[in-house]
Design a protein around this nucleic acid. Structure first.
Length: 519
DNA sequence: AAGCTAGTTGCTTTA
DNA sequence: CTAAAGCAACTAGCT
């Protein structure tokens, strides 16, 4: 019996390396490729750039499906409301989707699977968003997520290289399959424009990174041709403040699944073949493994996007400071390097990883002493590559809450950028009001004599803000506050020597592992 | 069990 | 100019 299938696109907005889609095609007479605009995921919290990227990716997907005599069906609403109607209307017998490890997705998919069963619909899902089966990695580490990168690497070495990607479906694969489309398809199931979604597009800048599988593969090809660059790639050696990106900017494509991480991995392996090349953690393979590291942590650690209830996260008495937070978010901290990065984020939806370090450290343990969860929300809204696991993991890393503990290493908002951009060209690009400042003062315009400020046509305190905090003073205080927070960590988190009393305290991870096993 | 080593990417001063 | 040392000292993971 040939199936009537829905393939549910969520992430994984691609045809290549899409095993769940291929599973749908195997024994299929009718195929309905579906994307649901779930208000829980796609709402006003999602920034314009991100919306534009998604719409581009959906358009590209629809375009590719058309070449296979199919179409994309875009629906709006909660998946648990949408699916029962579709199951009945289309007489669906099979639902396929790509496995997604986010907590919301796991609950959503469980609900939808139950509904499918109630409607007599079979469900098939496949793992293709990550290099490895994340649950398998955790299993391999005795049920605990590795807390260090090297530990994760050991696990991946045990499991061998990631699976090879599978090719996209061909016209031949689709020859006996129909996608029933009415003339009203565009009206009923079309891809909305930003205007239709009620968004004001006036503030949108140039589309530097258009969404979609075609653009993803084009960019991949482009970078993979640079064999010398790929083989010598070392992330810490790339510049956070170059005028054009010093890295691939493939991250948004991997986030939305326009590019398969495994395809990326194996293309790199081809380039490396027979040549001397850099290695993890700094190589491009290493970057994909960092993604895997944070995915594993996000699956294995409860409340991963929060401080409270997160057993491996240092509990810190962050301040509530709406004024400071707004200044950071709106690029008016008075530190040009910080403000330039936040401007790039707002305008382009992307900035270099090390630039993220600088602003994340500044918001949290370095200067403003505001919770990393606040920064997480801003990045989630504005980053094209905003990824639940990576965002939460990196914010914990940078705030020295989890994974990274050398809190006394504080990024200087003045010195850090100078290493790779002495003249401050990056600052001048994103903060044009500082364009005429001499290099000597570009990172610290408040130090410029009045005459220099006047000559530059920019008075600090009037045309550009004064620094909201004095870094030299505040960062030292904050190191002491971090030290105090670490001293308060529970015995399981940091073994405290108690005189006379010998007690073996189970690690926090063991504790919550037992709890979850009992359930 | 106490101690050791290593850890993607700090800053500043010195050689 | 670059490279190393000093700064003060964290945890995870291992032995």
């Amino acid at each position: 019996m040939a199936h009537t299938c829905i393939h549910w696109f969520r992430k994984g907005l691609r045809l290549h390396d899409n095993p769940a889609l291929m599973a749908a095609l195997r024994d299929c007479k009718e195929l309905y490729p579906v994307f649901i605009l779930d208000p829980h995921l796609y709402n006003t919290q999602v920034g314009l750039n991100r919306w534009r990227f998604l719409i581009g990716a959906l358009k590209d997907l629809d375009c590719s499906l058309r070449t296979l005599n199919s179409r994309l069906f875009v629906l709006r609403g909660k998946p648990e409301d949408v699916f029962p109607k579709l199951f009945n209307k289309w007489k669906v017998t099979l639902l396929t989707y790509e496995y997604d490890t986010e907590p919301y997705s796991l609950i959503r998919d469980k609900t939808v699977t139950t509904l499918a069963e109630q409607h007599g619909v079979s469900v098939i899902y496949r793992i293709s968003h990550t290099l490895y089966d994340i649950d398998r990695l955790i299993e391999e580490n005795d049920g605990k997520p590795p807390l260090t990168y090297n530990r994760l690497r050991e696990l991946t070495r045990k499991l061998g290289p990631p699976k090879k990607p599978i090719p996209a479906p061909t016209f031949e694969d689709m020859k006996d399959i129909k996608t029933p489309c009415s003339e009203k398809h565009e009206q009923k199931y079309g891809i909305p424009t930003l205007e239709e979604l009620g968004r004001d597009t006036a503030s949108l800048g140039e589309e530097l990174f258009p969404g979609g599988e075609h653009e993803a593969l084009r960019r991949l090809d482009l970078h993979m041709k640079r064999t010398g660059w790929v083989c010598s790639f070392e992330k810490p050696q790339t510049s956070p403040n170059s005028l054009s990106p010093s890295t691939t900017v493939l991250s948004p494509y991997v986030t939305f699944g326009c590019l398969s991480a495994r395809t990326f991995w194996w293309r790199l392996a081809e380039v490396y073949q027979g040549k001397k090349h850099s290695d993890p953690p700094v190589s491009l393979h290493g970057q994909l493994l960092w993604r895997e590291f944070f995915y594993t942590a996000s699956v294995g650690i409860p409340n991963f996007n929060k401080m409270e209830g997160n057993p491996v996260c240092t509990q810190v008495d962050w301040d509530t400071n709406p004024e400071y937070l707004a200044a950071w978010r709106e690029a008016r901290t008075g530190y040009p390097f910080i403000d330039a990065i936040m401007t790039q984020l707002r305008q382009e939806g992307w900035m270099h990883h090390l630039a993220r370090h600088a602003v994340a450290c500044f918001l949290t343990r370095g200067d403003l002493w505001i919770s990393w969860e606040e920064g997480q929300k801003v990045f989630e809204e504005l980053l094209l590559d905003g990824d639940w696991a990576l965002n939460a993991g990196n914010w914990q890393w940078l705030s020295a809450s989890t994974f990274f503990h050398q809190f006394f290493r504080v990024y200087s908002p003045v010195a850090f950028g100078k290493k790779t951009d002495k003249n401050g060209d990056y600052i001048k690009k994103y903060l044009p009001c500082l364009k005429k400042f001499p290099a000597e003062y570009i990172y610290e315009p408040w130090k410029a004599p009045r005459s220099v400020q006047q000559a530059a046509g920019c008075i600090v305190g009037k045309d550009y803000p004064c620094p909201i905090v004095k870094h030299e003073e505040v960062h030292k205080k904050n190191i002491q506050r971090m030290k105090a927070a670490y001293a308060k960590r529970s015995p399981a988190q940091s073994p405290v020597k108690k005189q006379g009393v010998k007690r073996s305290t189970p690690s926090v991870i063991d504790t919550f592992k037992k709890k979850t096993k009992k359930e």
